[in-house]
Amino acid sequence: MIDPAFCQLMARYNTWQNSGLRDVVDKMSDAELRKDRGAFFGSVMATLNHLLWGDMIWMSRFDMGEAPPGGITESVHLTPTKAVWAAERFRMDGRITEWARHLKAIDLAGDLNWTNTNGEAKTDRMWVCVTHFFNHQTHHRGQVHAMLTAAGQTLPATDIPALLDRH
């Protein structure tokens, strides 16, 4: 079982990592960001869009807020430009942080009833869904990190202890 402190740490980690990615992405050309690099979603931009879409869909299940349009297939086209992506990413990171900040232990207990992208009704333990949410972020950011490294970019540290050393 996870607790609110874990969620708050992971929300902070998510924001920190996405801030570093925004800085790197901002310096790259659109062609570099859209180049197929052999990853599951192909390009850096497609993967960043999918990751943002995934955060949006899971947060809509957790906070009953707005869900993104489309499904997984359309997720790679969520934002049209790196500037729009950066703005939406910033907003989503704030939404995640605020949600985590207000979490209570009871919020992580019990079940979450949700609908998957195939329209199937699902019920899972809330803490399992939240753990998946944070794991999904880390998984796809790892893919982005690998693609950016292969493209010759230098990225900031990714270790959680490095985040904790900052404050």
Rank of each mutant, 00 (worst) to 15 (best):
Q143R: 08
P69C: 15
D30H: 15
V128L: 00
N118K: 14
A83P: 04
E98Y: 15
A109V: 07
F133W: 03
P156I: 01
F133Y: 03
L155S: 10
T47Y: 01
G70T: 09
H167L: 09
L148P: 06
S60A: 09
P156R: 04
M92C: 10
A11R: 04
I106F: 10
T123Q: 04
P156G: 13
Q143V: 00
M126Q: 10
K35H: 10
T115Y: 02
R166Q: 13
W16F: 11
M56Q: 09
P69N: 14
H132W: 03
W99K: 07
M126G: 07
G94S: 03
D23M: 10
A5V: 02
A31H: 15
T81S: 03
H50M: 01
K82L: 08
W16I: 15
S29N: 08
E66W: 10
A151D: 09
R12P: 15
G94K: 05
L9I: 13
Q17L: 12
W53P: 00
T97H: 05
M45K: 08
Y13T: 15
R141N: 02
M59N: 08
F6A: 12
M59V: 03
N14L: 09
R22S: 06
A67L: 13
A109K: 12
M64G: 06
P68S: 14
S60P: 02
G70S: 10
H77D: 10
A67C: 10
V24Q: 02
A146Q: 05
L51S: 15
G142E: 07
A5K: 06
D3T: 01
D159P: 12
T15G: 11
N113P: 06
L108K: 03
K122H: 04
P4L: 01
T131L: 03
D93Y: 06
I57C: 04
H167P: 02
Q153N: 11
D36R: 14
M147L: 03
V24T: 12
V130Y: 00
H50Q: 07
A31E: 14
W99R: 05
D111R: 06
V76T: 15
K35A: 14
R89N: 05
T131D: 13
V130F: 02
R89D: 04
V25L: 09
W127K: 02
E88R: 14
H167N: 12
Q153V: 15
Q143E: 05
K104S: 13
K82N: 03
E98I: 14
L103E: 04
A162G: 07
E66Q: 13
I96P: 04
A31T: 05
I57Y: 07
M92F: 14
D111V: 08
A100H: 00
M59K: 12
V76S: 03
F134P: 06
D3P: 07
H139Y: 07
M92G: 04
E66Y: 11
P4V: 01
Y13G: 06
